[in-house]
């Protein structure tokens, strides 16, 4: 199946490592991804609807759908928040004819239209259901034997379209299956689809300390060596805030946080530049050394 990629704004900043490792993994698996949506814009994340309302944000998100439709390819998204905005807007375009005609009225002001012909798919969904675990197992050159992984799907990843999607909305398992295919061991992780606090680092920092702290505690208590996630916000909060939260809670976590495509890159024995581990704040090198990862 042919796809076009929606990278999202984090791909150029907090989630740069996700972007780099995504491109490398796509190539390693021979996936049919035809570059980025030309001139894609911000999906609005979790914030824009607060300032302009749901409908106007969804019209802005729909510009990306219209541009992708021109290219005639289904969309693959790695960021969970982008996935929520694009997939939910797309779902509403398909099921709500009044919404569809009003969004098209807004798009027409910019000379665009969207016929709701596309699918918006999350990367995990495409990896499991299109590429398939057999192929991922086959491509695994360095099985991650003995590596214990907390598979943090994240909240918006599995609840974007508000009904069962490619995974369970409360207790997701797809990321666990993927990590198993790489030879690693997923640990029990009941907070896999619980919130890290999202984008409230400045506006309600106590919320981040509390919720991200619970995620880190849960991973540590279940014996995880690393956390793996597809979501740039989950990754940012668990990685960048880890030391601060450890101090506040008088704990030590030493819990590297990897994007799922970074971990795949390790198992696929990709080059260091493709793993993009230099962006990680909690150093992952010690825990990945036995799989041949060097600085």
């Amino acid at each position: 199946m042919a796809y076009i990629f929606y990278p999202g704004c984090a791909s150029e900043a907090t989630g740069k490592a996700s972007f780099i490792s995504f491109e490398a993994v796509v190539k390693a698996l021979g996936m049919d991804v035809h570059g980025e949506i030309p001139d894609w814009n911000c999906c609005g994340a979790t914030l824009v609807a607060n300032a302009i309302g749901d409908f106007a944000q969804q019209a802005i998100a729909a510009r990306n759908l219209a541009l992708a439709e021109k290219a005639g390819k289904d969309i693959v998204v790695a960021c969970s928040s982008c996935y929520l905005n694009l997939a939910w807007t797309n779902e509403k375009m398909k099921i709500d004819s009044k919404f569809n005609s009003q969004i098209n009225e807004a798009l027409a002001a910019g000379g665009l239209s969207y016929g709701a012909s596309l699918q918006v798919r999350h990367l995990i969904d495409v990896l499991i259901n299109e590429v398939g675990l057999d192929k991922i197992r086959e491509r695994t050159i360095k099985p991650l034997e003995g590596l214990k992984v907390a598979c943090y799907s994240g909240c918006q990843t599995v609840r974007a379209i508000r009904r069962p999607d490619f995974d369970d909305v409360e207790y997701p398992v797809m990321l666990d299956r993927l990590v198993e295919a790489l030879g690693a061991t997923p640990v029990p992780f009941p907070l896999a689809a619980r919130c890290c606090g999202g984008s409230q680092q400045f506006t309600n920092p106590e919320l981040i300390y509390d919720l991200t702290g619970k995620v880190l505690d849960c991973a540590a208590e279940n014996g995880a060596d690393v956390i793996v996630t597809p979501c740039p916000m989950c990754a940012l909060n668990t990685d960048a805030f880890q030391e601060k939260i450890a101090k506040l809670n008088k704990k030590k976590y030493d819990m590297p946080v990897l994007f799922v495509t970074q971990l795949m890159g390790v198992a696929f024995d990709l080059k260091p530049k493709d793993l993009a581990l230099q962006y990680n704040i909690v150093s992952p090198y010690k825990k990945l050394a036995k799989y041949g990862v060097k600085k």
Binding site: C9, N41, G53, A56, I60, R63, Q102, I103, G110, L112
Partner: peptide
């Protein structure tokens, strides 16, 4: 960070959507 090329188009879509809302 990079900007998009067609900023005018985005603004028009937003303004129309806000009016419709």
């Amino acid at each position: 960070a990079k900007t998009i090329k067609n900023k005018g188009q985005l603004k028009k879509i937003y303004e129309k959507a806000a009016a419709l809302a």
